[in-house]
Each structure stands twice: as structure tokens, then as C-alpha cells.
Design a protein around this nucleic acid. Structure first.
Lengths: 121, 121
DNA sequence: GCAAGGCATCGACAAACGTCGAAACAAAGG
DNA sequence: CCTTTGTTTCGACGTTTGTCGATGCCTTGC
């Protein structure tokens, strides 16, 4: 029986110390502030290149990817860098330099927050 | 024990005859086409006003709302209409005129599709 | 120290976007 | 009909966005 598994994103240990952000989209009309916050996240994923980059990081083994691993998305290298910065500013990714390379990973709470918007619980 | 409930959005009866769209964001890197499709959805929700409108429709009793019910989002009425059109074009909402009023509702498959992007299953 | 490679920043530009007021359209009621 | 009310379309505007090439900044390896 598929679909009986709970979102692995909402493990109790995961959603502590992080943005409660917003109620489910379908629970009640968002306030202006809630909308401002959540829209920032959606907006960051609202560009095809950024979505590919995010997906590439999120699906990469070890949970992290160096820029060189994911730069093959059809735009120039400065543009890749620009989009990664946007994703960082939106709180979706974090980055860390290790030697020559810079590694990006998905901010732990982010997938849980997205799940929360979708009426889970 | 909370969080043991499965996404009500993925009931077997719901996701039939509709866009399979994309795999979970975390499963593998999105292709250009998948990213194009999914980004359109995220982009539509990436504006605070649109997100409030969508949330207002999604949370409204009966699953639908007339424009007059949700127009109080701080922008002019033409702007509201413009955003509703964008949400329609993105496939997130549908509309139907009944007499004087126009009613909007969330496209049935949309929440399921969004759930699918979040690594469910 | 110096060259090379990985990545970020800068400056520029066209395209897309959000917003509004004015006007048009549609339905209902006198 | 003509008016009223709800909604969409149009035209215009300033702002934001995505993109690039050129340049600069780290780190490593000679």
C-alpha cells in the first residue's frame, strides 16, 4: 500500500527552533504578513533555472552539492551564481566553502515548512 | 500522536486524469521541461497578493469564493482581477460566472501535484 | 610569489511584472 | 431602455528580474 508513509519532512526533531511561518494554505485566508513570508519561498522556486538548481542540490547524494556539480543548467556561470544567491537569500539553501569548492545544501526546515503549507496534519 | 495522517491531497481518487507533472523535488534533478512546468506553479504563488487570493479561495466555505468575497487584499479591484487571471492561467484556479458574480475555486488536482513535489511516496 | 581554476560581484540591458485609473462588458432591477 | 453593481480589459507607468561579459576574490599547486 503506497502513500501510507508520512512526510519524512515533519519528523518531530526537524521542526524545532525554526520558522512556524504559516498555517496550511487551505485552513484560513493568509494574512498580509504570512503571505509575504510564504511568497518569498514560492517566488524563489518560481524560476525554472532556480528550481533545477534546488532540485539538483536536494537530490544530490550526501545532501549537498558543489557548484561545479550542478552548473549544467544552460546558463552562464555568473547566472548560476546569481540564482544560488537568490535561493540562499530566500532561506532555501545554505552554503559552505571547503577548500576550492563551495557546497550548497537544502536548509533543513525548508521542506517541512513547505509541507506545512499543504494542509498536512 | 500527530503527523501520522497522510496527505489528504493524494487520495487515489484525486490524482487520476491529471498532470503527473513532476517527480518529487528531492528524487532527482529536474529536467528543463519539468522545471518549466513546476516553476510556473511556484511563480504564480510567488506574489503575496496572489498567495492571499489563492489561500482565500482555498479556505473558503464550499470550496469556492466570489471575487467580492476575497477582494479585500489591499490593492485595487482591477489588480485583484489581474492576479486572479494569472492564477487561472497557471492552472491553479478555475472560474465560473453565475449571474452577477464570478466564482473561483482551486483546480482539484493542484494540491495533489504540489504534494507530489514534496517527496511524498 | 605566481599561475590556474572555482566561484562571486559588478555593470548593463531588454524583458517581464505589479500597479493604477479609465473604460468596456455583463447581468439584474427598476 | 437606463441605471446600478460586479467584473474584466486596456493603456500607461515605474520597478524588478534574468541574463551576460568582464572583472575580482579565494584557494591550491607549482
Amino acid at each position: 500500500m503506497p502513500n501510507t508513509k508520512v512526510l519524512p519532512l515533519l519528523e518531530p526533531s526537524v521542526d524545532e527552533g525554526v520558522v512556524p511561518c504559516c498555517p496550511p494554505l487551505t485552513e484560513r485566508p493568509f494574512t498580509a504578513e504570512e503571505a509575504e513570508t510564504a511568497a518569498r519561498m514560492f517566488k524563489a522556486l518560481g524560476d525554472p533555472v532556480r528550481l533545477r538548481l534546488f532540485s539538483a542540490v536536494a537530490s544530490h547524494e550526501g545532501g549537498e552539492a558543489c557548484v561545479c556539480d550542478i552548473s549544467d543548467v544552460g546558463v552562464s556561470q555568473p547566472t548560476v551564481s546569481h540564482h544560488l544567491k537568490k535561493l540562499k537569500e530566500a532561506g532555501l539553501l545554505t552554503s559552505e566553502r571547503r577548500g576550492t569548492w563551495v557546497y550548497y545544501r537544502v536548509t533543513p526546515s525548508v521542506l517541512a515548512a513547505m509541507g506545512q503549507l499543504l494542509a498536512i496534519r
